[in-house]
Amino acid sequence: MDALEADDLLQLLSSRQARRLRVIENLLRGRRTVSTLFWGQRYRLLYLLDLGKALTRGGLDGPAQALVDRQLATWEAEEQPQLRLTPAGVAAQHAAQPFVPQTAVLWPQLDINAARKRLLLGVQVVSEYQHQTKRYYPLATDLATRQLVRRWFYQSDRQQLGTALQATLTRSLARLPERVATVTVAGFTGYQQPGLTNQQLAVRWQTTAWQVYLMHIEAVVTIAQAAQVATDPLSGLLGPLWTVPVTKSAQATLAAVQAGGTLDQIARQRRIKPSTVREHLLEAAIMLPEAAFPYERLLPATTQRTLLALLPAAIDDWTYTDLAPAVQAKIDFFTFRLLAIWQDKRGDSHGKSNG
């Protein structure tokens, strides 16, 4: 991952919604707490998950302060630092014309880091083989990636692999904006072509290395989509990297609920805390499509009506501790948060305050 500059962080902020800097940081670092995932959903930034594992805690503080110093954003007093764009920040955001990924909703469903490493090495190996190169320096990567690419290469029809790979890459790249396709190809390493780094591409295209990185991810995801078809030459290399964007433990908890178990029963059966059961379900509700989660079973209509009558229209303004003690005694925080997730996914009047 390339470091985010102030102009990159600018694109992740809003004038209508104060955004917690630590949430954005935790998304990038892959910290999957329910709070991080929930606010990632509210900010429409869940696609950032795991994209910056090398980012250190506080790694966004410098870019954030730079935006404040340039009067493009302001700090808002809270228990966690929050940023809101100023009118000047909104104008700068619009003027920048940043790259906006179109496949972002799919990013949490793919192991992007592994897919990118496999694709880059696979392209290099096939390119060198096509030109009968006997000696070359393979891209530096981890042992597992080298072994997987080697196995894929030798299990493929090597006489046809070059032509088939070129055809599938051409089809996938044709679905992308010309600039994204050009940047992606320039980053490939092959016969007599050293791939350009993100920094080099950023200079050439007068953008930031982070923007180039996002373009590469867009291309990798698009190529991996095609690899979901068994006849695609990259199927064995990229196909297995598609996954359900929920931990296996949370999947097991959700399956138990869908089978009819109560939360307390599931906690006993799975030998986990009731609070862990609730965390699993909130994670699943956030990360899965609305239709894949049993909201109606866990949120009776009477409970929904009671809460909605007491809460503000904007979900960002919902605060559990603002509810009367008598209400809190009947309705726990899990129910409160689950309703917020569902209202957001339904996109009704309670879910339109972000932007």
Rank of each mutant, 00 (worst) to 15 (best):
L120M: 10
L46I: 02
W107A: 05
V90Y: 09
R44D: 15
Y136D: 08
G59L: 07
Y154F: 12
L120A: 13
Q166H: 05
K117P: 01
Q80E: 14
T86V: 11
Q102G: 14
L67A: 06
V125G: 06
A95K: 05
Q155V: 03
L28R: 04
L121Y: 07
P63A: 11
Y43E: 04
L121D: 06
R118C: 10
Q160R: 15
A174H: 09
S172A: 15
L45C: 07
P101R: 03
Y136I: 05
Y154R: 03
R32E: 11
T86P: 13
R42S: 00
A174M: 06
L173M: 07
L120C: 04
R32H: 10
T168K: 01
Q80F: 12
T163P: 02
R32W: 00
G40K: 01
Q147M: 05
A167Q: 11
G122A: 15
A95L: 07
T145E: 08
R70C: 01
L83E: 08
L60D: 02
Q71L: 01
G62V: 14
A95I: 05
L51V: 00
L169H: 03
V149H: 05
A104E: 08
L120H: 12
D61S: 13
D50R: 09
A96M: 06
S172V: 01
A174F: 04
A140F: 07
Y129I: 04
A174W: 03
G162F: 03
L139M: 13
R31N: 12
Q132C: 14
L51P: 00
Q159L: 15
Y129D: 15
Q97M: 11
Q166V: 03
Q166L: 04
R118I: 04
R151Q: 14
P98H: 08
Q80I: 06
P87M: 10
N113Y: 03
D61R: 11
A167M: 07
K117A: 15
K53D: 06
R57P: 04
G40V: 03
T163K: 14
A104F: 00
G40Y: 01
Y129E: 13
Q147I: 05
R118D: 05
L165E: 04
V105F: 09
T56M: 11
K117M: 08
L143A: 15
T170E: 08
P87Y: 12
A77R: 12
L51T: 06
K53S: 09
L72D: 01
K53H: 08
R42Q: 10
T170H: 12
L119Y: 08
R29W: 02
Y136R: 10
R135I: 14
L83K: 07
L85V: 08
W75Q: 09
A115D: 02
T133Y: 06
T33N: 11
Q41F: 00
Q109S: 11
D61M: 02
W39I: 01
R146H: 15
L121A: 09
A144R: 15
G122T: 02
L139K: 11
L45N: 10
P81L: 09
L51F: 00
R151F: 04
R150V: 10
L165N: 03
L161G: 10
A114K: 12
N113T: 09
P98E: 07
P108W: 01
L48F: 02
L55F: 00
G62M: 12
A64P: 05
P63F: 09
Q132S: 15
L106W: 09
T74M: 14
